[in-house]
Design a protein around this nucleic acid. Structure first.
Lengths: 96, 96
DNA sequence: CTCCTTAATGCGCATTTGCGCATAAGCGGG
DNA sequence: CCCGCTTATGCGCAAATGCGCATTAAGGAG
């Protein structure tokens, strides 16, 4: 369980997805793709990994699939997410 | 950086090492090996990954190599470790 | 129904990861 | 020096991962 969460996060595109979804709102795959410079099939499979790890949930809305952070995530997993996001923000700040 | 931390943690034996080192004291590889049911070469290579991710430091003491959590770990990385350890403890408690 | 947009998936391939085995290297004791 | 204990590493292999390409599926609009 935790291991699947950690390996889901240990990939730059997937981590980028989590960072984008961290605003709490919904985003469709077609919106995430260009922002993360990912092709369609890559994005689709990465989203599958995030879904299976329980990090995101999806909702079909017409021809779109809208993703958001799983609102029912266990609090201890949510803490990992928050810590990871904070650490990657700090890293970006240094890099910039 | 964060990605190397996450992928270092996303492996059961390595996560086990971190959990054992979380008591704050030093442990030699030969002590960790039987506790985590790992062979010598496996353990050696896993420790290398943890070292390169900056999670542990090692110290040669005669024929032993003593490991401990990196005391100079960046606080935001340390927070990830703590969150991960708490989550895996919770998981163990449910499993037991 | 046809066309368009969005998303999922089968397939094959290249790279990475994890491992065991054997061997080397580091260190202390006799 | 030789031996024993501990650790590191070269090598080859099997499995997992990540990807592109092409195709399929799902949905809405005309």
């Amino acid at each position: 369980m935790i291991l699947s969460v950690l390996s889901a996060l240990a990939e730059p595109t997937r981590l980028g997805v989590i960072a984008l979804l961290a605003d709490g709102s919904e985003h469709c795959a077609c919106e995430l793709m260009p922002k993360l410079d990912a092709t369609q099939s890559r994005m689709s499979r990465h989203m599958q990994v995030l879904r299976q790890a329980g990090l995101v949930v999806d909702r079909r809305d017409a021809q779109w699939v809208r993703y958001r952070l799983n609102p029912d995530m266990a609090p201890e997993i949510r803490q990992i997410i928050d810590a990871v996001l904070e650490a990657s923000q700090k890293q970006d700040r240094v890099a910039a």
